[in-house]
Design a protein around this nucleic acid. Sequence first.
DNA 1: TATAGGATAGGCT
DNA 2: GCCTATCCTATAG
Length: 206
Amino acid sequence: MQNTSGKKLSLEFFRNGDVVDIARNLLGKTLYCFVDGQLCGGTIIETEAYRGPEDRGSHAYGGKRTPRNETMYGAGGLVYMYICYGIHDMLNIVTGEEGTSHALLIRAIEPTVGIDVMRIRRGIFDQDTRLCQGPGALAKAMGLTKLHNSILITGEQIWIEDSGISYTDEQIVAGPRVGMNFDGPYKTIPWRFYVKGNKFVSKPHV
DNA sequence: TATAGGATAGGCT
DNA sequence: GCCTATCCTATAG
């Protein structure tokens, strides 16, 4: 087992504050997963916020509640996973108090631990920047699937640590979220955050 | 019960 | 840049 000497983020981190702020604050934190006996991890460098019932882009838009998105209504700190386009698993973290439905999507990390395992899972051996570049790729590299839905982000399988990395406002880009196929203010609201110039950020770049 | 479509990624033109 | 795999989910009938 490799060193993960940072401070594990508590449930309070995800329960207090606005999902948009939390998504932004996660940049620079380290995501770890221990799946199939393999430890993988990396620096979070791209996130998106989905702000509950008001947000047209959210699965919980208008207060919609179905078996798929039920996890979003749980207390902050739960992992919400679902499949997109029938192929890609997406890693989200629920925020806020129980009964609210805010969540953030982790879109990309810069791998630092278990890179060899990620290469095998992804079948990519010559371009490490692609290993976790995009939400579907990230989940695959980390070994995460919808089977991990509704587990805690503070457990033994998946957690986030503060390793002391922080970015200034000038190092963070806030732009429109990816894949918003509808009209209205939430189509372009700048709730996608990423580290400027980082080679591991997913396309499209703003 | 049927069917349209999606918070993507990779390969091809 | 465009195309589509692939399949679960939501929604309508």
